[in-house]
Design a binder for these strands. Structure first.
Lengths: 198, 198
DNA sequence: TGCAACACTGACTGACCAGTCAATCGGGAG
DNA sequence: CTCCCGATTGACTGGTCAGTCAGTGTTGCA
């Protein structure tokens, strides 16, 4: 694939991202993506085999980065609270850097497991499992109490983060850096105080 | 409207619920609903003006009951933790009683605010506001610390509950009574320990 | 310069499906 | 019994849109 071809692929991908964020995956037409990209309709099918494959690509590229961030946090020698802070920070900063991408991932994939996300359930579950592993290790160390199951703790943690992002996405829109920081701290405070031994 | 007509309306509503739960709102056809109800295609349009109106009805009927449950909890003279427990119990028990209804509400409305739920954002927000009001009152009483905003606490609480239900919906399926109880306790433990003064 | 090979175009097709409507049914009032 | 009106039927229509394809540009290599 030539350099120009790689660029056009990216142009289409970025255009699709904007269109999905604006209109939603189900509501938009492939021609909207082509128009947004300034490209002929057929070219979209030169680079992608279907409308779904475009969303797949957007999701998987980003989700793999997140799974790596979770694995990194787990592998570090920081405290459990710091590990969870690193994960919350990664997700929240992802929103700060590219709100449209996070909107599409959350709204069209993560929270749409019924229609589209079903394909990606396993990938999504990997994230929960990574967080649960951190909690589980913390319980073995004695840093976290063990009356909450790691799986449940992971759901509460991830659910809180996602709910905060959802609030920004649908109510307040993009948000300044200080609010991003405040959110990370509040999430980690609330959840970790509930998990740590006192 | 005759008694028989009211019944048919319910038959269609229940059929739609099963179909939405099974196939998703966007993926199913109105003819699937008619078939499931054992009724002619056109009759659906005798009772409802559109496919969306059916989903609207299912959502609003249930959501209003939930808003009432939140208001009741708030009005009672129980402790903040007990109030939040009552709300978690209401939502979790709703799932226990009718998993299909909760699946449709969460997957097709609450978590689909982009396409469909946009219409109901205000209604959904009322629930957050009700929970935030309980937290806010607890902070004034001194029962809860005030370094977490009530809005944030509401998001963490509601997000945790919804994430647990989502896990049941997409991974484990219907769940027995003891697991329901365990979930209520763990949610309230985790979140309240993070909010209460120590 | 010529000729692959790939990038790119956009009109077209086939399938799908929400919503309409004209026709039929059925039961209660007179 | 008959008339009326709401309940019920399902074939049909109009519009939409994902994906195809036959063709035209472009580039770079021999």
């Amino acid at each position: 694939m030539t350099a120009a071809a790689t660029d056009k692929r990216r142009v289409i991908l970025n255009a699709a991202l904007r269109v999905f964020a604006r209109q939603g995956f189900h509501t938009c037409r492939v021609s909207d993506i082509a128009d947004e990209a300034g490209v002929a309709y057929g070219l979209v099918y030169h680079y992608f085999s279907s409308k779904e494959e475009i969303l797949d690509t957007l999701f998987l590229d980003r989700w793999d980065v997140m799974l790596a961030a979770i694995a990194d946090a787990d592998a570090s020698d920081r405290s459990p609270r710091e590990k969870l802070h690193a994960i919350a920070a990664f997700i929240v900063d992802s929103y700060g850097r590219d709100p449209e991408l996070m909107k599409v991932i959350i709204v069209e994939v993560t929270r749409a497991a019924n229609t589209f996300g079903r394909t990606h359930l396993a990938k999504i579950r990997e994230a929960y499992a990574g967080i649960a592993a951190i909690v589980s290790a913390a319980q073995r160390d004695g840093a976290f109490r063990d009356d909450i199951t790691p799986e449940f703790a992971a759901q509460a943690f991830y659910g809180s983060v996602e709910q905060v992002l959802t609030g920004w996405i649908f109510e307040t829109g993009p948000v300044d850096a200080s609010e991003l920081e405040r959110a990370k701290t509040q999430i980690v405070q609330t959840i970790c105080r509930g998990l740590e031994r006192t």
